[in-house]
């Protein structure tokens, strides 16, 4: 089993954090993982994406050309990454911020009101956690409990209030499907 994932959005939407959380989660479940961020002269509000590979075998290439799964957080990323998804792949997209719709018929689009749900929970910036929850449920790739542990490894300096809110967002996402 090898799953190649790309997460994309604006800088500040937690794209890189989501990738690292998946990396930690894979490691916790004793899988082989790689995480590679697109790095550059990036800034808050600019575009950001990262590639994550989770596999039962050692990962050959950390570079992902055609992902099995994409998680799209904003409009420009949909146009950029929809064409790259493998046939029969999964495309999760943040419906709250994306007005256009995926066009391909050979992939499965999964709309998520990520930002709306996050705002309802009290914090727009945890939309990425909602997306991770949905993804975990739909793919069965990682357990929800593992993701909760993983986010605590990522946000090692965060206070308990924030960490519990993150857990809630993961759970809400997980319960959506």
């Amino acid at each position: 089993m090898t799953k190649e994932i790309i997460i994309a959005g604006f800088g500040g939407q937690g794209v890189v954090s989501s990738g690292i959380i998946l990396g930690y989660a894979g490691l916790i479940e004793d899988k082989h993982v790689t995480f590679f961020p697109s790095y550059g002269a990036e800034m808050r509000g600019g575009t950001a994406n990262c590639s994550v590979v989770i596999s039962s075998e050692p990962v050959a290439s950390p570079i992902v050309a055609n992902p099995d799964i994409v998680v799209i957080m904003n409009e420009p990323s949909l146009a950029r990454f929809e064409p790259t998804v493998k046939p029969q792949g999964l495309l999760f997209f943040n419906q709250t911020l994306i007005t256009s719709r995926p066009k391909r018929k050979d992939i499965t689009p999964i709309p998520v009101e990520a930002n709306a749900i996050a705002e309802e929970l009290g914090q727009g910036r945890i939309a990425n956690m909602v997306m991770l929850g949905v993804m975990a449920k739909k793919t069965g790739l990682l357990k929800i409990e593992t993701l909760k542990k993983a986010q605590r490894k990522r946000f090692i300096k965060a206070d308990e209030e924030q960490l519990s809110l993150n857990d809630k967002a993961l759970e809400r996402g997980y319960a959506l499907l």
């Binding site: 690292i20 490691l27 082989h32 993982v33 790689t34 590679f36 961020p37 950390p62 570079i63």
Partner: peptide, 10 residues
């Protein structure tokens, strides 16, 4: 190279 430096792995 930049990829090996910026990539995370176990």
């Amino acid at each position: 190279d930049g990829l090996l430096g910026q990539m995370m792995e176990p």
